[in-house]
Measured scan of single mutants.
Amino acid sequence: MALNTPQITPTKKITVRAIGEELPRGDYQRCPQCDMLFSLPEINSHQSAYCPRCQAKIRDGRDWSLTRLAAMAFTMLLLMPFAWGEPLLHIWLLGIRIDANVMQGIWQMTKQGDAITGSMVFFCVIGAPLILVTSIAYLWFGNRLGMNLRPVLLMLERLKEWVMLDIYLVGIGVASIKVQDYAHIQAGVGLFSFVALVILTTVTLSHLNVEELWERFYPQRPATRRDEKLRVCLGCHFTGYPDQRGRCPRCHIPLRLRRRHSLQKCWAALLASIVLLLPANLLPISIIYLNGGRQEDTILSGIMSLASSNIAVAGIVFIASILVPFTKVIVMFTLLLSIHFKCQQGLRTRILLLRMVTWIGRWSMLDLFVISLTMSLINRDQILAFTMGPAAFYFGAAVILTILAVEWLDSRLLWDAHESGNARFDD
């Protein structure tokens, strides 16, 4: 018995066209964080690309023209004298008006014999932002004059995390709450300039795509075929072959399989920071003279006294001054041990922890910024005066060393310790 099946006739004509040209192939790229070699397709503007294995951002879609970056830099340069030299806060102490600005706080630190601690604050609040705007201006002028731009481009990517104007702005709020127990506070004209400078700096850093600047100024022929001998440069993120001198053909720094002496430098910085954190938390970090009496505060006791007036601000200072430094030390110690013992479990967790400490590390400088600003506000000789204690130097040095330890660690070593050939990683 035959089955009668109805015929289905399409209502619209289906047209099949042959592909007349070869589909576009992607360029081969190595991930600078996990060293995976993959094919990167062509990316349009405002599109980002991520590593298929570790999800690290390979290409950032946010990109401004150099002219727009230069305009932002010149605007920031105009704001800087007002943000640093004009009063941020006014207080009335014992019937006398006192003005506080950024430069005055750094000068008070240096004047009291601790120039190293003052230079830490100076670099993060004044030096690094000033280098940022002058570097962008150098790129703008240098591109037109045919100057060598490689050193500036190499420095810009590392400079971003040292620009800490946003953290200093939080420190202004913390210092205001600490001082309000002794005097009446009012915002100064410099505060508005400083807030504007923070906003412009944040926007500029978020749109400063150094890798795209490398592509514009020093374009290189990408690798179009897969080759395990391809290496990625950690300076400019170019994937290719080393030249005859073993250097990256684009930025001219040595092109090595792994960062040289990464573990040794990381261990040295980490152990030194552990040693410095002990006096930083045991010795007094601030000293207040009130009517001839002397009151010393460690980091913890200062947080407890701050909690009596504002528990939320005390929580912020606790996280930045105690929780973050010790968390960074514990995480980095764990990561280094996992590399030495070739741990194969929990790779995803370790990668996330490394990215976390990379982002939060700079916030530990908050305590030094609060001390710097408070020193310029309260300084009335023996009637009422505020000065920093010996722990300030140890704390600042420990924070900087932990930042350097994270920067010096080559994250690809975590993958080397893991089993080879993993296309995915999980716990």
Rank of each mutant, 00 (worst) to 15 (best):
R97S: 13
A137T: 05
N148A: 05
D426E: 07
M332D: 03
L66E: 12
M120Y: 10
R59F: 05
A2W: 03
G105N: 01
F122I: 09
R250G: 12
A312T: 15
L257D: 12
L278G: 13
P87M: 06
R247Q: 14
I383N: 01
P390A: 07
L377N: 01
H252K: 10
A49N: 04
L234E: 15
M332H: 06
V125W: 01
E228H: 13
W408F: 13
R17C: 11
E211W: 11
K160E: 10
L169R: 01
S65P: 04
Q33D: 08
G173H: 02
L255Y: 14
L257Y: 14
S273K: 05
L208R: 14
Q104E: 05
L377R: 01
C266P: 09
A385V: 04
L377H: 00
Y168K: 10
R221Q: 13
I288G: 01
A196H: 12
M304Y: 14
G292M: 15
S364W: 01
V210N: 15
G246Q: 07
L347R: 07
L377A: 02
A423Y: 15
I322T: 03
V102R: 00
L230G: 14
L159F: 02
L234H: 14
I400K: 03
C124W: 01
R53N: 10
D297C: 06
S286E: 00
I98M: 02
R144E: 10
L263S: 12
S420G: 10
N422D: 10
T202W: 15
L368M: 10
Q104R: 03
V174P: 01
W359V: 13
W415K: 10
P242M: 13
A56P: 00
L78A: 06
V189C: 12
T204D: 06
F74R: 01
S39L: 11
R216D: 13
A2M: 04
V125K: 07
P222K: 14
I360M: 07
F194G: 09
W359C: 13
V317Q: 00
H46S: 08
M147A: 05
S309N: 11
Q112T: 08
T349P: 14
L139E: 02
I330D: 01
N101S: 09
R380Q: 01
E228V: 13
Q47I: 10
A269W: 04
A307M: 15
F123D: 08
A269N: 04
G26E: 08
E211C: 14
E211V: 09
M147P: 02
A183I: 02
T9C: 06
L270G: 13
L159E: 04
Y218D: 10
A397K: 03
E407Q: 09
I185M: 15
I91C: 03
R25A: 08
P325M: 01
I371L: 05
T201R: 15
R144K: 13
R362N: 02
S309V: 03
T298F: 07
W408D: 04
V170S: 15
G118M: 03
W359A: 10
E212F: 15
R158C: 14
M304F: 13
A417D: 08
G105A: 13
L88E: 02
L145K: 05
S321Y: 15
L145T: 10
P222S: 13
Q345M: 14
I136S: 05
D114E: 14
I91M: 03
L409T: 07
D27Y: 03
W267L: 14
Q33T: 10
R380Y: 04
Y241G: 14
E212D: 10
A280V: 06
F74Q: 04
E296R: 10
L88K: 02
M120R: 01
L77Q: 06
F341I: 14
G127W: 02
D367M: 00
R412A: 01
L404I: 14
W64F: 13
D367L: 00
L323K: 13
M164E: 05
S48K: 14
S308G: 14
T67P: 10
L263M: 14
V370T: 05
P254C: 04
N310P: 12
V195L: 14
G302P: 00
S308L: 12
T202P: 04
A405W: 04
I274F: 14
R424P: 07
R59T: 06
V174H: 01
F425N: 14
Q7A: 07
V179Y: 01
T224G: 14
P284R: 08
S262D: 08
L384V: 04
R260P: 07
S364I: 00
L197A: 04
Q264P: 03
E22A: 06
C251G: 00
L306S: 00
A49S: 06
I400S: 05
H340S: 10
N143C: 15
R62P: 01
M155H: 05
V357K: 06
T117Q: 02
L368H: 03
E211I: 15
L77W: 07
L93T: 01
A307C: 15
F425V: 13
D99E: 06
T11R: 08
R97N: 15
W267H: 14
I400A: 04
R231N: 11
P254Q: 13
C248S: 00
C343W: 15
Y241Q: 13
G171N: 15
H90S: 08
I351L: 12
